[in-house]
Simulated scan of single mutants.
Amino acid sequence: MTTFRDRFEQLGYAWPDIVPASLPFLPATRIDKTVYVSGQIPETGEHIAFTGKVGDAVSIEDAQKAAEICAANILFWLSRELDGDMDRVVQVARITVYINAVAGFSDFSNVGNGASEFLLNVLGDKGKHTRAAIGMAGLPLNVPVEADAIIHVR
């Protein structure tokens, strides 16, 4: 039987190793049967994989990869919130993908597809979700993409 972690690694991603920052908010919190995951940036270990604006220093392809990393980090925090029991996931309800782009850029949906396709590939039907892909004038640490999520669990 293939687990979500197997599918995750088959996609070529190492399981994230993220240390919670000392910030005045939680990376994820569960309220009843809903997990809210805070905005995730394309960080891998102690490094930021991509910086800059999409349409300038960052190509659409790299922005899609950044969105995939953000989605992987969402799953990392979700797994931690569920004590590793991802069988408790009922459905990813919604993700929002924020894109740090140059003025005039309009291919936000294409960038957001990086996160959406990753979740579908790893979680299958449980990864189907609603989504918004929104252009921003800037993001923390000058990353090109940030994503957050709302996930229903049992």
Rank of each mutant, 00 (worst) to 15 (best):
Q64H: 02
V153A: 06
I60F: 01
H47C: 09
L120V: 07
Y36V: 13
N73V: 05
E81G: 02
N73L: 07
G114W: 07
Y36G: 02
D125P: 01
V97C: 08
H152N: 11
D56S: 15
W15H: 08
E117C: 05
R30M: 12
I18W: 09
V111P: 01
T51M: 10
E9K: 15
G104Y: 04
D32P: 00
N142R: 11
M136R: 13
P20G: 03
A21R: 14
Q91H: 08
K128H: 09
E61L: 11
P27A: 04
G104T: 07
I69D: 00
N113W: 05
D85R: 05
G138H: 10
L23P: 01
D6R: 10
D107H: 14
T34H: 03
G135D: 01
I48S: 11
R5I: 15
F108E: 08
A72V: 11
G124H: 07
R88Q: 12
I150P: 00
K126D: 04
V37R: 02
P24N: 07
T96W: 03
I151F: 10
A66K: 01
P144Y: 05
I48W: 14
D85G: 01
R154C: 04
D87N: 15
N121P: 00
V58T: 09
Q40F: 05
G39Y: 03
V19C: 04
V58A: 09
D87V: 02
V89S: 02
Q10R: 15
S106N: 10
A93S: 08
G112I: 04
D125R: 10
W15C: 05
A147F: 03
A71Y: 00
G138E: 14
R94P: 00
V92E: 07
I41M: 15
E9D: 06
P140G: 10
A28Q: 05
Y13P: 02
V35A: 06
G12W: 11
R7C: 10
R80L: 05
P42S: 05
S109I: 09
Q10L: 15
E43Q: 15
D32I: 06
V111K: 00
V90W: 01
K65T: 13
T34I: 10
E81T: 08
N100G: 03
V97L: 05
G112T: 05
E46A: 15
T3D: 14
N73G: 06
I69Q: 08
N113F: 06
C70H: 03
E146A: 12
I31F: 06
G112H: 06
G84S: 03
H47W: 14
S38F: 11
P20S: 04
Q40T: 12
G114V: 07
H152K: 14
A71M: 01
F4N: 12
A49K: 10
A147S: 11
V143K: 04
F118E: 08
S109P: 00
G114H: 07
A93C: 02
F4P: 13
I99Y: 00
A14H: 15
G135W: 00
R88M: 09
E61T: 11
A101C: 09
V89D: 03
D148L: 08
A149C: 09
F105M: 07
P27Y: 06
G12F: 09
K65W: 09
L75D: 09
A49Q: 13
G112N: 06
K53H: 08
D125M: 03
P16N: 12
G45E: 14
D125K: 09
A66E: 01
D32F: 05
F4V: 13
